[in-house]
Nucleic acid binder design. Structure first.
Length: 634
RNA sequence: GGUCCCGUAGCUCAAUUGGAUAGAGCGUUGGCCUCCGAAGCCAAAGGUUCUGCGUUCGAAUCGCAGCGGGAUCGCCA
């Protein structure tokens, strides 16, 4: 076994290792051997074959770009070097023999697979794992997802963290890593204390606060938030400009009210944090009400986020003081203008971990979270799927954690800390998506509208379908549409939310993927109805004569490396793009390569059925890996 | 002002991590349903990849400068 370039493979031909049957790995093997023969003095770490799918399908199935970089190293012209490679290489059993005609442009070497190599590779991939081998090194990856706040309904801002975060986690799971999701619930700050305070007032007035809904809590949250917000800036302005005395008195009264409310909230926070029984009971009501609704929405979104993944800020409460003390003791945290801060190299802004009044902050909790995630949870890599606006915050926290050594894993390595940031969801006006009144858009209402729209389309396409069958389909189609729209663009970019586009059911959308799946499933049902032995087709010889069939086969073979690339930088949009490409090929195949129609001989029929079945499985596996629900018919 | 992110077809987005003639979808124009689902397929038109310089066999991609847009910058979370 040796590791060359980016591929690990086995030389022996008699073992049934899947990697030997993967044409990319096999070609890599042969090219590297040829490179060594032509340039024996080349250092081993520069023996790179650069094999990839062909950029020009007319010229071949694969290409090697090895000639250009290596030719320079050995002082040859790229085309001359390519000629030597073509002369020296042995591609027997894999590809058509190479010649001068295989070389194009500055030195690209085009390779066309032998039909039997293609079907052998497909055959090797036709297993439960679809060609995805266990990782050479199984890592523990902690993914920070969702992150709702207590007493607040989920809004569009939580959509991306939940959908992308879950997809990132699923991809790593699919690649064979141990994944732990963590939802950093905002359950411990002053805002929550304000709501607790308000609930206690309501309870005193005779309200049964255990029956308060999340919507009501949300309203209370907004109300108390506004109440406590001192309008000192406005007052200063009036004083400066010289406003009416009456207005000034009125404003002063409001500020006094606000200050009083703030004082009560602070007192309540102290009571809550010191374990006051009534405060804790009221807090628990808020927690349960919020989380029940949140987890329901996650479930609806097919995001695998459950109670066990919730790790609220409150769970760190006993860890904060010792952590801060540790940082003081080791001289990592220093006092600055009354506050306690950590200064990190290369970052001008200090990370504040304790306020002048002794209170802890967002960064303090996140430091404790890193410590727990690396230490107790054993994370080798911690991925934060959080809004890009928190870029500086995570840069600071990561640097501070590193300075303190909280990122040291059990075997002494530094855990990889990644902020997998995402952009804002915009409205059609290119501004952050808000409701007409300027508030955050409620997520479950947004999903409801998607379902309503999907349902109308499903009903239109299937007038005779009973509602009992239509409803779950509409739900799945709507979620697929919303999720695909969120996942299919580069996550760092903002994107414009458009029901019309994502649910138009045309083109590059979630429903298009579902449609491709539904059509093949229908085809297989039809086959069974016609009395075709579908089990026999599962082991039939693949039909690969048509260009579309070959293209499908080559695309299917790319699945494992595509998944790997998706996991590398946590970029679900790569997998989306691939699945759309595969679905497009399926649609083309469906038009051009009849399976059950008259005039198709049995072996072609079975060979096409087998190709369809494996394509279907890749598509379903891909959707599942992204957390996109699928349907049998639509 | 400092820092970070973004700038690709009329619109919304890709581009296998530096590779060949920059690709899709929507929209536009024109074809294809007595034939496995037309939520589909085929074809056409549409580009100075914001600008300039640089790095090299080769740049949308890397570097520098500028322009335009967004975010963020000590006691909220």
């Amino acid at each position: 076994m040796e590791r060359v370039g980016t591929y690990t493979f086995v030389m022996s031909t008699h073992t049934k290792d899947q990697s030997t049957l993967d044409p990319t790995a096999a070609l890599n093997d042969r090219f590297c051997a040829a490179i060594r023969a032509v340039a024996p003095d080349l250092p081993e770490d520069q023996v790179l074959a650069h094999i990839g799918p062909s950029r020009q399908p007319k010229l071949g199935d694969f290409q090697s770009n090895c000639a250009m970089p290596i030719a320079k190293r050995v002082g040859m012209k790229p085309r001359d070097f390519a000629s030597k490679i073509v002369e020296a290489i042995d591609v027997s059993g894999i590809a058509h023999p190479l010649s001068e005609e295989s070389i194009a442009g500055p030195g690209f070497i085009n390779v066309s697979l032998l039909p039997e190599a293609l079907s052998t590779a497909l055959d090797a991939m036709d297993s439960d794992q679809l060609g995805i081998a266990p990782p050479t090194e199984r890592k523990t990856i902690v993914v920070d997802v969702c992150g709702v706040n207590l007493a607040k309904q989920m809004h569009v801002g939580h959509l991306r963290s939940t959908v992308i975060g879950d997809a990132i986690a699923r991809v790593q799971e699919r690649l064979g890593h141990a994944v732990t999701r963590q939802s950093h619930v905002g359950d411990w700050g002053l805002p929550i204390a304000m709501v607790v305070e308000q609930l206690s007032v309501m309870e005193d007035e005779g309200t049964d606060v255990s029956k308060v809904s999340l919507a009501e809590l949300n309203a209370i949250y907004k109300k108390v938030q506004a109440k406590c917000k001192a309008e000192s800036r406005a007052l200063a302005l009036i004083k400066k400009v010289g406003g009416h005395v009456k207005a000034e008195i009125e404003l002063n009264e409001r500020i006094a009210d606000a200050n009083a409310a703030m004082e009560r909230a602070k007192a309540r926070l102290v009571a809550l944090q010191s374990g006051d029984e009534r405060s804790v009971r009221l807090w628990q009501i808020i927690y349960d009400t919020t989380m029940t609704a949140c987890l329901h929405t996650c479930d609806r979104l097919h995001a695998n986020i459950t109670d066990e993944h919730s790790a609220g800020e409150s769970t760190y409460r006993d860890e904060l003081a010792p952590l801060v003390q540790d940082l003081i003791d080791r001289g990592i945290a220093v006092e600055d203008d009354g506050a306690l801060v950590v200064q990190c190299e290369g970052i001008k802004e200090p990370t504040i971990i304790r306020k002048r009044d002794g209170g802890f902050l967002y960064a303090t909790t996140d430091l404790a979270a890193i410590k727990r995630r690396v230490g107790k949870l054993g994370g080798d890599e911690i991925v934060y799927c959080v809004d890009s606006r928190q870029g500086l915050h995570f840069k600071q926290v990561f640097a501070a954690a590193h300075k303190a050594g909280y990122d040291k894993t059990a075997d002494g390595k530094d855990a990889v800390l990644v902020h997998a940031m995402f952009g804002t969801i915009l409205g059609e006006d290119n501004k952050p998506l808000k409701s007409r009144s300027g508030e955050n858009l409620n997520l479950s209402e947004l999903l409801d509208e998607a379902v309503t729209r999907a349902s109308a389309s499903v009903a239109e396409k299937n007038p005779d379908m009973p509602a009992s069958e239509r409803d779950p389909i509409s739900e799945a189609v709507a979620m697929a549409a919303v999720k695909y729209a969120d996942l299919s663009t580069e996550r760092i970019k903002d994107y414009v939310f458009s029901f019309d586009r994502m649910l138009a059911f045309e083109g590059d959308t979630g429903p298009y993927l579902l449609y491709a799946i539904a059509r093949i499933k229908n085809l297989l049902r039809k086959a069974t109805d016609k009395g075709v032995d579908t089990d026999a087709a599962k082991t039939a010889e693949f039909s690969l004569d048509e260009p579309t069939e070959r293209a499908m086969a080559l695309t299917i073979l790319r699945y494992p490396s595509m998944l790997k690339a998706t996991g590398e930088n946590h970029e679900p949009h790569r997998l989306c793009g691939y699945l759309f490409e595969l679905a497009s090929l399926i649609a083309k195949f469906y038009e051009q390569c009849p399976v059950l129609k008259d005039g198709v001989d049995d072996s072609t029929r079975d060979g096409r059925m087998r190709l369809s079945m494996i394509a279907l499985r890749v598509l379903e596996d891909g959707c599942d890996t992204l957390g996109i629900p699928t349907v049998d018919r639509m």
